[in-house]
């Protein structure tokens, strides 16, 4: 009888300790959760000077550009630049459009449903990393001016062509991250930008005419009826 009593006491003691222990662990967890909040990645502007100020379209055919102390003549914006009239995926079945950017390989893949419509080299951020995550295009501009950097790194580039700005909850619209054509370098496949995803002009043009919202003039906003194409950016760029 005494043995039974002892074993019952022992079991009760174990359960009591388990409950008290669990309560202590949960309390420590809740306290830690509140005292050590989740850290968000702080993302800066893609173009440190034009960021937030120049997110509107601007065509400047008589302007001159500067990139890393060198003068760069910008492309003249006219129909002449619309070399390719082919719309990506025109002969393929319709499907959800999605762009994937692989920073490790410096590649961009565009899908229409399960069909790939574009696969090309890009240049992501070198002086300022390109953010990763899932994004949505919110505005498309035929051209705009991008300015940033300082000293030998200063750049002022008018007529940056075929700009597709994207955003998410962490990377706001005002930070100015985009896919766009680049006319000042041809080093695609290697990080070269200040955060944006640089592409060949012809690749950017084809993507610009394919992505949603459907292009309507020099400035096209995404709407509830015509939301922007999704972009997924992942991986770690070489050298970072």
């Amino acid at each position: 009888m005494s043995k039974k009593k002892n074993s019952r006491k022992s079991a009760f003691s174990f359960i009591a300790r388990f409950i008290i222990g669990g309560f202590v662990v949960i309390s420590v967890g809740i306290l830690t959760w509140h005292l050590y909040p989740q850290q968000k990645i702080v993302v800066g502007c893609a173009n440190s000077i034009s960021c937030g100020k120049e997110l509107s379209g601007k065509i400047e055919n008589n302007a001159s550009g500067i990139f890393h102390t060198k003068k760069v003549p910008p492309p003249q914006i006219s129909d002449v630049l619309g070399i390719s009239k082919t719309v990506l995926g025109a002969t393929l079945p319709p499907g959800e459009k999605h762009i994937y950017v692989d920073l490790a390989r410096q590649m961009l893949y565009a899908y229409q449903g399960k069909n790939i419509v574009m696969q090309t080299h890009i240049s992501s951020g070198k002086w300022n990393p390109t953010p990763t995550g899932d994004f949505t295009i919110w505005i498309k501009l035929r051209a705009t001016r991008m300015t940033g950097g300082e000293g030998a790194d200063f750049y002022d580039l008018p007529n940056v062509p075929y700009v597709m700005y994207f955003y998410n909850d962490e990377v706001g619209k005002g930070l100015g991250y985009s896919l766009h054509g680049a006319y000042w370098h041809n080093n695609f496949g290697h990080p070269m930008s200040h955060g944006c995803v640089n592409m060949r002009i012809t690749d950017a043009e084809a993507l610009y005419n394919w992505t949603e919202p459907a292009t309507d003039g020099e400035t096209t906003y995404a709407t509830d009826d015509d939301p922007g194409t999704k972009i997924t950016i992942s991986g770690v760029a070489p050298g970072q």
């Binding site: 830690t32 850290q39 968000k40 994937y100 990763t132 995550g133 997924t232 992942s234 991986g235």
Partner: peptide, 12 residues
């Protein structure tokens, strides 16, 4: 603490 550290996606 580890869960609250930023962990960017490394692969699709």
């Amino acid at each position: 603490i580890w869960l609250h550290q930023p962990h960017p996606p490394t692969s699709v």
